[in-house]
Simulated scan of single mutants.
Amino acid sequence: MSVKSAFEHIVNRDHVYPFMVPKQASNLNVDKNILLYLEDISVSFDGFKAINNLNLYINDGELRCIIGPNGAGKTTMMDIITGKTQPDSGTAWFGQTINLLEMDEPAIAQAGIGRKFQKPTVFEELTVWQNLELAMADDRKVWTILNAKLNSEQSDMLMETVALIGLKENVGMPAGRLSHGQKQWLEIGMLLMQKPRLLLVDEPVAGMTHQEMDRTSELLISLAGRHSVVVVEHDMDFVRSLAGKERTVTVLHQGSVLSEGSMDKVQNDPKVVEVYLGE
């Protein structure tokens, strides 16, 4: 099967893939060192308040872990940030100048927000290299992308990303032959090729081996500083490895912030123990 035929076979035409989003100049302003502002956000579905007066602030370059029981509003929060869901009230700003509530999903991706869902969405019949090359392309003509020669800057960036995600030995392998964990790393790499300022990562270690979990923790920690990374996760051992002693953990419950602080602080908070950690 040719590359073109493989792509036609596997692409989901309803999905907004990053490489299909035309690049535009961003007016992002983070002079106050806060990259994401969610203030007084509320949204209801059929009378159920999924998000209830949520206030959340993510610093530029921060790695933030967000935990909470099922139904706490974690996925809805990410849907609001990425434009999939419009809140009933409140404000959402990317930096000080970009109003997320006035933008659709492609425009938000253009502004520098990337989202990784729990299930990896790589192109399994294309190689690791082709997946990353496709994700980085500035030319929106897909068939040109997959047959064009990379310039030195693009090649350097791609090789740096391959090394970062730990797939240097797998560049010529079809993505469908990778392990579950490797597919997760590849999708993170595909998002990184778009140079996002904010990366939202949903339950990245579900179904991973312990070794893969350790490698994922190292990868996400290495991204902090160059990117802001928000990780939603249920596995408490993994959250502890990410948060360490100094990073902030936010606990959501019934659509709002129940507790926030270091991992030691939130895991010893009686309210958190009652509604989440004590389950």
Rank of each mutant, 00 (worst) to 15 (best):
K4Y: 02
K4G: 03
H9D: 15
I10D: 05
H15K: 11
V16H: 12
P18L: 04
M20H: 09
V21I: 15
V21K: 10
V21T: 15
S26M: 09
N27E: 10
N27I: 14
L28G: 12
N33S: 09
I34V: 14
I34T: 11
Y37N: 02
E39P: 04
D40I: 14
S44N: 13
S44H: 10
D46L: 14
K49P: 07
A50Y: 01
N52R: 06
N53H: 11
L54C: 08
L54G: 11
L56F: 02
N59Q: 12
G61D: 03
E62G: 00
R64F: 01
R64M: 15
I66A: 05
I67C: 10
I67W: 03
I67P: 05
G68P: 04
G68Q: 03
A72R: 09
A72I: 10
A72L: 11
T75D: 06
T76P: 08
M78G: 01
D79K: 13
K84F: 08
P87F: 01
D88Q: 11
S89Q: 15
A92H: 07
A92V: 02
W93S: 08
G95L: 00
Q96N: 12
T97S: 07
T97D: 08
L101A: 02
E102V: 01
D104S: 15
A109T: 14
A111S: 14
G112V: 01
R115A: 03
K116A: 13
Q118C: 14
Q118W: 08
Q118A: 12
V122G: 02
E125R: 12
W129G: 04
Q130P: 02
D138M: 08
K141H: 04
L150R: 13
L150H: 03
N151F: 08
E153V: 14
L158I: 14
E160Q: 11
T161K: 10
E169R: 07
E169I: 02
N170S: 11
V171T: 07
G172R: 05
M173A: 07
M173R: 13
M173S: 10
H180T: 11
H180F: 09
K183D: 00
W185A: 15
M190W: 06
L192M: 01
M193W: 01
K195W: 00
K195M: 02
P196C: 13
L198R: 07
L200P: 01
V201F: 03
V201R: 09
V201W: 03
E203P: 11
P204D: 06
T209E: 00
H210W: 10
Q211N: 06
Q211H: 06
M213P: 09
D214Q: 07
R215D: 13
S217E: 01
E218V: 15
L219C: 15
L220A: 13
S222C: 13
H227K: 12
H227M: 00
V232I: 15
E233R: 09
E233W: 05
E233M: 11
M236D: 03
F238W: 02
V239I: 14
S241E: 07
S241V: 04
K245D: 11
E246Y: 05
T248C: 09
H253F: 14
G255F: 02
L258C: 08
S259C: 12
V266E: 03
P270W: 10
V272E: 08
Y276H: 06
Y276C: 05
G278T: 09
E279P: 06
